[in-house]
């Protein structure tokens, strides 16, 4: 057990950026919009968070900036998917391309710098609990915020009026419009908030995980988050499980490498990606057997009030 505790703690740490992005995408997809730009949003978040923290010394300001940068970029995606009714797959790819390019163009002078960022703040009392203490409550504040976020979303999505509207617009925008609400406005809102959350996940990487900026540092985590949304069947609680599972795979990989096995590093680095395919496969096989996977009914389908049928 003693050997496993550091691995599990590391799983939580490296799962947190993926968790933020996954939760954000759950909100976006619940509203019926698919945003494949998570990878680009995470990179922009990582860069903008780092650069603001570097110049002001305040990591909280960095996280806030990252959030709003994410909101701004996903507003473009919302405009194209909701107002124009454009192809969401291509628009998402454009977000990723733009975000990857812009972050490395802007961040070229930041390479090699470090920030103090977020440090560990053990929670008093809770961190003393055997096993769960060091695994869950001996981290930086952003990890704790992600716990809160999960609980908040569970309540918000399933227990509030707003959450009901969110689920409704993802299932059937016509109904939401008939209720006198604007389907378009709701989709804009949740696409933007979801994008902001993905960017915060990126900021976690540069402010708490590595405490430096590196070109392309999200290394596919945004895409893994897209897959995790399916794994989580659009449910925040299962997103936690998925994110930490992936964090664990990543953490194990680093540990095995550090232990100096003769196993080649590039082969080890394939693991999270292969694991993603495997997880997706298991989910799809289950779905094929008729086990209910409740994807938002109108996911990825543009809706225009003028053309409702």
């Amino acid at each position: 057990m003693d050997v496993l505790i550091p691995v599990m703690a590391a799983a939580v740490r490296s799962g947190t950026p993926i968790l933020y992005a996954t939760l954000g995408e759950i909100l976006t997809e619940r509203s019926g919009v698919q945003n494949l730009g998570l990878e680009g949003l995470m990179l922009m978040g990582a860069f903008s968070g780092f650069s603001v923290t570097y110049s002001t010394g305040d990591p909280w300001l960095g996280v806030l900036t990252a959030f709003f940068v994410g909101v701004a970029i996903s507003a473009v995606h919302a405009f194209l998917s909701v107002s124009v009714g454009a192809n969401q797959v291509v628009s998402g790819l454009a977000v990723t391309m733009f975000g990857t390019g812009a972050s490395s163009l802007l961040g070229r002078k930041m390479i090699g710098l470090t920030v103090k960022g977020f440090g560990k703040v053990p929670v008093p009392l809770l961190s003393e609990i055997p096993v769960a203490g060091p695994v869950l409550f001996d981290h930086d504040p952003l990890v704790y915020i992600s716990y809160g976020l999960v609980l908040f979303l569970l309540w918000f999505i399933f227990r509030t009026r707003q959450g009901l509207n969110l689920r409704a617009v993802g299932e059937s925008p016509v109904v939401v419009d008939a209720m006198g609400l604007s389907a378009a406005r709701l989709r804009y809102l949740y696409t933007m908030i979801g994008g902001g959350m993905a960017a915060v996940g990126g900021a976690y990487l540069s402010l708490a995980y590595t405490k430096m900026w590196g070109e392309g540092m999200s290394a596919g985590r945004g895409w893994i988050a897209v897959a995790l949304v399916i794994f989580a069947v659009w449910h925040p609680a299962r997103a936690v499980l998925g994110a930490y599972l992936f964090g664990g795979v990543g953490a194990m990989q680093l540990r095995i490498q550090a232990a100096g096995t003769s196993f080649p590093a590039p082969i080890m680095m394939m693991m999270p990606y292969l694991f993603t395919i495997l997880v997706l496969l298991v989910i799809s096989v289950k779905k094929g057997k008729g086990i209910l996977i409740d994807a938002p009914g109108a996911l990825g389908v543009p809706y225009s009030r003028e053309e409702r049928t």
């Binding site: 628009s91 454009a94 990723t96 391309m97 733009f98």
Partner: peptide, 13 residues
């Protein structure tokens, strides 16, 4: 890459 991203955005728009 930035230019490519902008082209895609613009074409979609």
């Amino acid at each position: 890459q930035v230019i490519q991203g902008c082209i895609l955005f613009s074409v979609l728009g």
